[in-house]
Each structure stands twice: as structure tokens, then as C-alpha cells.
């Protein structure tokens, strides 16, 4: 195992009642590495990344993030959540707060950053995702693509070391997918460590260091994107790729 890995999963198992949703997951992510996780619906890919920041609790195995082992200790969980940003499929912006307040909330309350400084950082990030003019609007007034870019900026506002993306483009209208992917590509180029659950295979080809295919709670196959798409080895991977690349 590489010594500079920032995320380390060893023998992770999880059940929903009787349903074995994650089965013996071993995964090591190096600093700066970009990983794309794909797989059919219900394969456990979202659950996997949600375990990394403890939105879901795993029952067996170890998860070590940035040297901190996840346990029931709230201090540990909060320490990890400070370092790990997350972007959701359904954006989950806070509708009662302006865009700027959405961004500055966590830096002010969690990092105890002075308001002025937090707002400067937030405006800088809004410029990066190309919507600084929306700062004083409410989430409901923005398009889906804009909301998702705000959500990315909101996660970045905490200066995370790792970013988790849970199907960030699945809830978007097709014409807005690109604006979000562009921001993510840019982020990847800057060297952010990323784990991204997505079916955007173009994105996977462009930025991923590794593509992971999950099915029925297992990591079935993982490889560099070129190899993964050109010569999938497992039958299940072949079937899946055949299905999603059928029209594209």
C-alpha cells in the first residue's frame, strides 16, 4: 500500500437489515488521485462514498481518512467532515439562505472564520464557478446547473482536502450537465483528490486516474480509464458498459 494514501478502506462491510449493501470493500486513494465509481442502480456506490464522511455508518472494517480512523466518536467524525467536501445529486442548498450565506455558513460556524474573510473566499469561489452575480439571490431563483455549481463552491469554501461527488449531474437537465462538468474538470486539474460517482463516461475518460465498477455491493473491476473502457475483463462490467454506452 502506498504510504501517501489519504483514504484507506479495509474490509468494509455494511448491511441494511438483511441486505448486504457493501461487501468486503478494500480501497486506497492517493493524494491528488481522481476516482470515478460507476455501476448499476443499487450497487452500493453512493453508500460507499457516504460511508467515507459518515453519512452512513459501516458495520465492519476500517475507514481511515487523512490519518483519522472513523469511529462513533463525534470529534473524529467532525474532524473528517472538515476535510471532506461533498456534492449531492439533489444539490441540497439551504433554500432559506442567500447563495453567499450558503457558502459562508460553514467557514463562519465551523472554522470560526471572521465573516469578512469568509465572504471574500466565497466571492472568489463564486467567480471560479462563474456565477458571482448571483451571490445575493436565493437558491430557488437559480437554474439546476447554477445550483449545483453553487453546491460545489459551498463545499470548496471549507478548503477541503478531498471532494466526494454523489451523481452530481444526474438531476440536471441535459443542457446544464456540461457547465457542471467543466467546473469539476477544472477542479481535477488543480490537483484535488476526488471520488466521483457518475455515469458521465466522457468525464471519466478525461480526468479519472482510475475507474471502479461496482455491482451488488462489491468492487468488481478497477482499471485506468483507457483500459477499463477498451478492454473490460469481467462479464458484468461488459454488460453494464454495453448498456450505458449503447446510445452514446
Amino acid at each position: 500500500m502506498a504510504t501517501n494514501s489519504v483514504i484507506e478502506l479495509k474490509g468494509v462491510n455494511k448491511w441494511y437489515g438483511q441486505f448486504h449493501v457493501l461487501s468486503d470493500i478494500n480501497l486506497s486513494v492517493k493524494e491528488g488521485e481522481k476516482i470515478v465509481v460507476c455501476g448499476p442502480s443499487g450497487s452500493g456506490k453512493s453508500t460507499l462514498i457516504r460511508c467515507i464522511n459518515r453519512l452512513e455508518e459501516h458495520q465492519q472494517g476500517d475507514i481511515v481518512v487523512h490519518g483519522v480512523t472513523l469511529s462513533n466518536d463525534v470529534k473524529n467524525i467532525e474532524a473528517i467532515r472538515r476535510e471532506v467536501g461533498m456534492v449531492f445529486q439533489s444539490f441540497n442548498l439551504f433554500p432559506h439562505l442567500t447563495i453567499l450565506d450558503n457558502l459562508t455558513l460553514a467557514p463562519i460556524w465551523v472554522k470560526k472564520m471572521p465573516k469578512k474573510e469568509a465572504e471574500e473566499i466565497a466571492m472568489g469561489l463564486l467567480k471560479r464557478v462563474r456565477i458571482p452575480e448571483q451571490a445575493n439571490k436565493y437558491p430557488g431563483q437559480l437554474s439546476g446547473g447554477q445550483q449545483q455549481r453553487v453546491a460545489i463552491a459551498r463545499a470548496l469554501c471549507m478548503r477541503p482536502k478531498i471532494m466526494l461527488f454523489d451523481e452530481p449531474t444526474s438531476a440536471l437537465d441535459p443542457e446544464m450537465v456540461k457547465e457542471v462538468l467543466d467546473v469539476m474538470v477544472e477542479l481535477a486539474k488543480e490537483g484535488m483528490t476526488m471520488i466521483c460517482v457518475t455515469h458521465e463516461m466522457g468525464f471519466a475518460r478525461a480526468v479519472a486516474d482510475r475507474v471502479i465498477f461496482m455491482d451488488r455491493g462489491e468492487i468488481v473491476e478497477q482499471n485506468e480509464p483507457e483500459e477499463f473502457f477498451a478492454h473490460p475483463k469481467n462479464e458484468r462490467t461488459k454488460t453494464f458498459l454495453g448498456q450505458i454506452l449503447h446510445h452514446g
Binding site: 467532515r81 461533498m86 441540497n92
Partner: peptide
């Protein structure tokens, strides 16, 4: 929506902060 609780959790807000804010 559950997502509101999750988003607040994911950004490391504590329970009182999440509840009040």
C-alpha cells in the same frame, strides 16, 4: 427533505448549529 440534514452534517455543523441555523 433528508438532504437538508445530510448537507448540514456533511459540512461538519454540530447538532445545535444544524438545528438552529
Amino acid at each position: 427533505p433528508k438532504g437538508q440534514f445530510e448537507a448540514a452534517d456533511a459540512m461538519a455543523l454540530s447538532y445545535p448549529q444544524k438545528t438552529i441555523l
